[in-house]
Design a protein around this nucleic acid. Structure first.
Lengths: 243, 243
DNA sequence: GAGTGGTCTAGACCACCAA
DNA sequence: TGGTGGTCTAGACCACTCT
């Protein structure tokens, strides 16, 4: 044979099919492990391996003492719209955001390069958590170079300053008016830290947005890294066409 | 104890740390399973479970007969830029795209709604594969409603017509000039089909873009669904700011 | 306490790769 | 042919939830 025995994939495939055909609805309990052992006449670990596969695909959520729940596949409940600010977040999502960290730091190589400053140069770093319902849905790290942060009328290294809209307006007032943002959007699996911060179930990717805000002269004014729960955050962009 | 025994997570954690600290570099081989059994004095399945964890996180890639390779964490090698067309794809990435399917179909409910036509109404569906190096990197499904597809000077249900730029120009020539696109970007784990099409290693999410192209009067002209390998595709948007 | 999933073991056999 | 990872087993013990 070219293949080893196939129980694991076989069982996973059958359950996956039953989910996609609606035999098992989101919220339903899957048959218990002992039931599946009976049904397929295989060992416990084999059944668990099949379920684990479905879990990493985001289709099932095993819970100790209760059973295995069929997950809602794409409950994309929230939209982050770029080029807008946290005011928009609140309006659109009825969520909230909170500054959890703000301080002067030395720019690491990556940040220094995107901001066009010297490595190790002074930057303000601000970390925010965006919340909706219970639980953090997106985290943001923001870096602002000294020549911008120092020109602004408030102390950005202070957690009190918590409104993005004001920040952009303050920048404008300080002679650093933001003109455009460039956002690069990608996906990857979360680090263990991110899984904890965002309470991610197994098999849920994160949605990563790297933003650079520039002034009229194209000089970078700030850069941010948004990391959102892949099953709860998406981004919408509208772009005029030229072809 | 509140926790069961922890070997699996413990071993995974140690290896993960060694990767992030550079003791194991991308491309290196991890110690073999027998070595790790020796080192940690645990059973084979326990070691495999730890490695499987790292694999689903995208950090390790076990290969039969060879060993387990440390994966390159974020090799985002390619950029899809929205509002542009496949001409741009070729210029930017030195890749190619190929039409693998083109035919008239009946609109399913979702497509019908986004296109603003009747459910089951006639649409042209076109599927393309975007390739770079060896292997498909992104697949696209596109739906064009009859009043647009029928007005265009070529037969879109024919696979020969393969250039997106021409399509937009053809639409314009037929009195349906595209004016804007709205793109919604998200992330999720792939279906088994997608894993095969895109040759995705375990633990790699897909990067999903849902696009709607509209004319001057906001009427939908086409909709597309882009599904890309999360470790190879990202999207970049530049947006003028208004705050 | 009964039932659920989580972890671990010791051993077996298989598929694949490279020398 | 020897080493690597992949699958599977039968049984044990543990942690958690619900009644």
């Amino acid at each position: 044979m070219t293949n080893p025995r196939v129980w694991k994939s076989q069982i996973a495939h059958e359950i996956r099919t039953k989910i996609s055909e609606g035999h098992y609805q989101p919220g339903d309990m899957l048959p218990s492990i002992p039931d599946l052992i009976q049904h397929y006449q295989v060992s416990r670990e084999t059944v668990r391996a099949a379920i684990a596969l479905l879990a990493t695909e985001g289709l099932a959520l095993p819970e100790r003492g209760r059973g295995t729940i069929v997950r809602d596949t794409h409950p994309v409940t929230m939209t982050y719209t770029p080029g807008a600010a946290s005011r928009t977040w609140k309006e659109q999502t009825q969520g909230s955001d909170q500054v959890v960290y703000a301080a002067w730091e030395e720019a690491d190589p990556g940040v220094a390069e995107t901001l066009g400053i010297a490595e190790g140069g002074p930057v303000v770093r601000r970390t925010r958590h965006f919340t909706r319902g219970r639980g953090v849905v997106q985290t943001v790290d923001q870096w602002i170079p000294q020549h911008v942060a120092g020109a602004v009328a408030v102390d950005l290294a202070n957690r009190e300053v918590d409104d993005q809209v004001n920040l952009f307006e303050l920048m404008a007032a300080a002679g650093h008016a933001p003109a455009t943002t460039t956002e690069t959007v990608g996906a990857r699996m979360p680090t263990p830290d991110e899984r904890e911060d965002l309470s991610l179930p197994p098999g849920t990717p994160v949605h990563v947005t790297h933003r650079v805000t520039r002034g009229e002269d194209e000089s970078p004014l700030e850069t941010s890294l948004f990391v959102g729960a892949g099953d709860r955050v998406s981004s919408t962009f509208t772009v005029p066409l030229n072809y």
